[in-house]
């Protein structure tokens, strides 16, 4: 099985051309499991993280933490996220620990073009979702 880095070779250029030439930077994150941070120019605050297990490749974007949610709208926000899940193409909402994420999962042997398409969609969707749901946040 290829390593994640081998599999992602050249993905910065593919993502960049998908997003109309925005500069894209890749950076490995040290730790027990392979993680690559994808930073996209003009959206530096919303990097995408790519990680993998035996079964899948996972692209994640951190949206907000539990602490940022206005308590009075929390249930409505959670319901909205469940409702949105089937409608948003390629991306789903989730929570890891106290961080809410938008993520896309792909087969472990996906092509670099497919991973790039997922990352681009994730970045657009994350920005859109944050804009749409910011009323629920402090």
């Amino acid at each position: 099985m290829k390593t994640l880095q081998q599999q992602l070779r050249g993905i910065d250029h593919v993502i960049s051309s998908t997003l109309g030439g925005l500069a894209v930077q890749l950076q490995p994150i040290p730790g027990e499991v392979p993680v690559i941070q994808v930073s996209i120019a003009e959206r530096d605050e919303l990097p995408i993280f790519i990680t993998c297990s035996d079964a899948q490749i996972l692209c994640m974007c951190f949206l907000w933490t539990e602490a940022e949610i206005r308590p009075e709208g929390r249930t409505r926000l959670l319901e909205t996220l469940l409702d949105l899940n089937p409608s948003v193409p390629l991306s789903s909402f989730g929570r890891v620990g106290d961080r809410f994420v938008l993520f896309g999962a792909l087969s472990r042997d996906s092509r670099v073009e497919d991973i790039a398409a997922d990352v681009a969609a994730l970045s657009d969707n994350a920005l859109d979702a944050l804009d749409a749901l910011s009323e629920f946040l402090n």
Binding site: I29, V35, L58, M60, V96, G97
Partner: peptide, 17 residues
């Protein structure tokens, strides 16, 4: 099990970073 562990470990590396 492996996927869950991998996601949580990745998140913890990212948070540390």
């Amino acid at each position: 099990a492996r996927t869950t562990e991998s996601v949580y470990r990745a998140t913890s590396s990212i948070s540390d970073n």
